[in-house]
């Protein structure tokens, strides 16, 4: 009984994860090998695809990797700071106002971005932040703020009221209380927010495509799109590119997978 369950599980998982295997294995093959035996192990093992995308492709890979790393980390910091501040300070408002704010946050959480992309773009243009990484980061911060706030609020509930009251009696103001008491408590929740918003921001395609344009540089996803647009690509290089741009999130996930799932559950309002 147990072995049957193990067998079925492994068999289904292999089928399910087969596309991942394909991408990975083919990134180490020569072009002919890919076309003739896509599913097998490499007949001749090669790193050429990886070397090629670093050497040619107009620095597309190195450029997009650096850009993505920078703007993803900045977006994460913005989301962390702003949403933890909001989650903490909302606490002191009346129930009614809290609820109104939460309805708006929920609206933001379920909002498909294409709906607001045009006005966001005009607003950023108005303040001269269109086509800049700062503009994009601000937008991501705003867009993922509801998620961060909901996760942090879940953790805030566990903080005893007395603890906060006590700090105020000791003469602390809101900022001191936030920095000294709340931030340390929110640390485990931060891990969830970091890994989840990080993954979302890293993987996002449409927003950087529209809000960033081509001149400011590219992100990993837009870089992939550009690479495919160039007719001279071959499959091996495409696969290698996909492996490299997915690796950072995959590694982050493997190390922080516990927080990932906790965060998703917390963010879903449970």
């Amino acid at each position: 009984m147990f072995y049957r369950q193990v067998f079925i599980s492994i068999f289904l998982s292999i089928i399910f994860l087969f596309p991942l295997y394909l991408v990975f294995v083919n990134s180490f093959k020569f072009e002919n090998d890919i076309l003739n035996n896509p599913a097998s192990f490499p007949e001749l093992f090669t790193f050429n695809n990886y070397i090629n995308i670093f050497v040619k492709s107009n620095d597309l890979l190195s450029n997009s990797l650096t850009n993505s790393i920078i703007f993803t980390s900045l977006s994460i910091i913005f989301v962390l700071v702003l949403s933890s501040m909001l989650a903490f300070s909302i606490h002191f408002l009346s129930k009614k106002i809290q609820n109104i704010i939460f309805i708006f946050l929920l609206l933001g959480l379920i909002l498909p971005t294409p709906i607001i992309l045009i006005p966001v773009f005009t607003i950023l243009k108005f303040v001269n932040l269109n086509n800049t990484f700062i503009g994009l980061i601000l937008f991501f911060a705003a867009y993922y703020l509801p998620f961060g706030t909901l996760v942090f609020r879940g953790f805030m509930k566990n903080i005893p009221k007395e603890m906060i009251e006590a700090s105020f009696i000791d003469g602390a103001n809101f900022i001191v209380c936030y920095l000294k008491i709340i931030l340390p408590i929110l640390k485990p929740a931060s891990a969830s927010v970091i890994i989840i918003t990080g993954t979302w921001v890293w993987n996002d395609f449409l927003n950087p495509l529209i809000l960033l344009g081509p001149l400011e540089g590219t992100t990993v996803t837009v870089g992939l799109y550009r690479m495919v647009g160039q007719y001279s690509i071959n499959f091996g290089e495409l696969y290698a590119f996909m492996v490299l741009i997915s690796l950072p999130v995959l590694i982050a996930y493997l190390f922080l997978q516990k927080y990932f799932i906790e965060g998703l559950l917390a963010g879903s309002g449970k």
Partner: peptide, 8 residues
């Protein structure tokens, strides 16, 4: 058109 719309 997209570039024009984004001032580029």
């Amino acid at each position: 058109k997209q570039l024009q719309a984004t001032d580029q």
